[in-house]
Amino acid sequence: MKRRDFVVSGLALGPGLILAAPVKVQTLTEARIWLDQLEKAPGAKTTGTWPLVSVLEHLSQSIEMSLDGFPQPKSAAFQHTLGAAAFAVFQWRGKMSHGLDEPIPGAPALTAQGDWKPAANRLRAAIARFEANTGPLKPHFAYGALSKAEFAQAHVFHIANHQDEIVSG
């Protein structure tokens, strides 16, 4: 592993007590490494509304839909104005922030409970499929047409944003 894979940020809780948080993923390769680490971590869960299985399925859906199409895209006018502006702000900030319990419009329902490890495997497969793709990508439901590099960045931002609610015991 690279040195930065071991770097953690700390929040002091009192004398000698530090709550460590993992470094946010910055590439799709790091996302796969993070999934490997998550599977080895005891008691992985979310602190938000969705259980971990739902979050991982949601992340998979986003990547899969960049290849297969989003079921309910916003209007072209929205994509070219507000959507494009939102993505530009995320790029400028170097991170995304969005409602972490908002499903992709028209996406299939997420699994509400159960083992999250199959969902982690689905996310790995979605990342691998995206990386191997050499064909055209489908427009993002909100941001519109993105290049492969821009979509990769959007996917990384999305995963990193959801990391805010994923913890291990």
Rank of each mutant, 00 (worst) to 15 (best):
Q113H: 02
N121W: 04
P136E: 14
G94T: 12
A119C: 04
A125W: 03
V53H: 01
E64G: 03
Q113C: 03
A128V: 07
M65C: 01
V55W: 12
T111E: 07
A84G: 08
W50M: 11
F87I: 10
W92D: 08
A76Y: 04
R93N: 14
N133H: 13
G94L: 14
G83Q: 07
A107D: 14
A119V: 07
N133C: 09
L123V: 11
A119S: 09
G114H: 01
M96G: 02
S62N: 15
G114A: 04
P105G: 14
W92F: 12
F90D: 00
S97P: 00
P108Y: 09
P103H: 10
P105Y: 15
M65I: 00
A77D: 13
L100Y: 03
T134Y: 00
A86H: 05
F90R: 03
F87C: 07
M96K: 13
L82F: 14
A85V: 09
E131T: 06
G69P: 04
L52R: 05
G135I: 09
E102I: 05
Q61K: 05
W116A: 02
R93Q: 15
A112L: 11
A119H: 02
F130W: 05
H98T: 11
V55Q: 04
P105I: 15
R124S: 01
S62M: 05
F90T: 01
F78E: 11
W50T: 03
K117A: 07
F90Y: 13
L59R: 02
F130E: 03
W116I: 00
A128Y: 00
S75A: 13
I104Y: 08
F90M: 07
E102V: 00
T81P: 05
V55K: 06
L67E: 09
I104R: 10
R122Y: 07
G114R: 03
P118D: 01
P136R: 12
D115G: 02
L110A: 06
R122H: 07
V55P: 07
A125S: 12
Q91L: 12
K117G: 01
Q79Y: 08
L56D: 01
R122T: 02
A86C: 08
D101M: 02
H80G: 03
P108Q: 10
L110I: 08
L123A: 04
K117F: 02
L52Y: 08
E102N: 07
P73M: 14
Q91M: 12
L123G: 01
A128F: 04
E131I: 02
K95H: 15
R124H: 13
S54P: 00
E131C: 04
E102F: 00
F78N: 05
T111D: 06
N133M: 02
A84K: 15
A88V: 06
G99D: 10
K117H: 10
S60C: 05
T134C: 01
S66R: 05
P108E: 13
P108M: 11
Q72E: 15
G106W: 11
S97H: 05
Q113L: 02
A132E: 13
L67C: 07
P71R: 12
T134I: 06
